[in-house]
């Protein structure tokens, strides 16, 4: 994975993700909750974008919609040039298989599989041969620093290590879009810091568009762009000063 960071190159192509006037409401019994209402947003390629806000502000729903896991009530989502609303569930699965990676708050690793197997598993569905899958999985695990422990099962790993395996699993697919939902909130400070560094590095070195939802303030310093949400609207959109980028940006 020694691809040179094509940050500027991809950035000129335009936004990797674009939401136009999206609305989403949930109905529970007779109560209808409007979570998102006419939200418009562009996410640039090759950046680590952080969406932060209090719980219930609609940030997870926004992530689900931008990643194609949930349909919108109104508006449209364009990801990598495809309009997600126009794809049926099978085509959406295909889109996710080819282009997206996910990291969840719960690590969601299969208890029976070793770290290496967890990472290899989705690769087979991409049509890679056993050898190719093994190579890519090893590479990804190396990138998150899990090589020495890649033959251990989740029960033998710490929380931070599990999350690193989960990141390697998402990363090995070489996705253009990487979605992370509260990736650090189940972790202590040190492990959280490691995860943030890894996510940031992925955006830098692979040119991956990383969209991260979190209320963890530690992440803000590392993000290229921070969107603050409240009540289904974006309150602020800012780019923090980039001290984090230079010292930690890994040379290709």
């Amino acid at each position: 994975m020694s691809r040179p960071a094509p940050v500027t190159a991809t950035a000129t192509v335009g936004p990797a993700l674009r939401a136009e006037g999206i609305a989403k409401a949930f109905v529970s019994g007779k109560v209808r909750t409007q979570v998102l209402d006419g939200l418009t947003l562009s996410i640039e390629a090759g950046e680590l974008t952080l969406i932060s806000g209090p719980s219930g502000c609609g940030k997870s729903t926004l992530l689900a919609i931008l990643s194609g896991l949930q349909k919108v009530d109104a508006g449209r989502v364009i990801a990598l040039g495809s309009e997600l609303g126009g794809l049926d569930s099978r085509a959406l699965e295909r889109f996710r298989l080819l282009h997206t990676g996910f990291v969840f708050q719960g690590f969601n690793l299969f208890p029976a599989l070793t770290g290496l197997e967890q990472v290899e598993l989705p690769l087979h569905y991409l049509g890679l041969s056993g050898r190719q899958a093994r190579e890519r999985a090893t590479q990804s695990l190396d990138e998150v620093g899990m090589t020495p422990r890649m033959h251990l099962r989740p029960s033998e790993l710490s929380g931070g290590e599990k999350q690193r395996v989960a990141i390697a699993r998402a990363l090995a697919k070489q996705p253009e879009l990487l979605f992370a939902d509260e990736p650090t909130s189940a972790l202590d400070a040190a492990n959280g810091q490691t995860i943030i560094d890894i996510l940031h590095r992925i955006a830098r070195t692979h040119g991956t568009t990383v969209l991260c939802v979190s209320h963890d303030p530690r992440l803000i310093r590392h993000a290229d762009r921070v969107l603050s949400m409240e009540d289904g609207r974006i309150l602020s959109d800012r780019r923090p000063a980039p001290p984090a980028a230079t010292p930690e940006g890994t040379a290709p």
């Binding site: 699965e93 996710r96 969601n108």
Partner: peptide, 18 residues
Amino acid sequence: GSVREYATLNALGVGVGN
């Protein structure tokens, strides 16, 4: 018991059929 892991695979694009 493994429904969250299956859901994760589906999020990563592994089809329901698989």
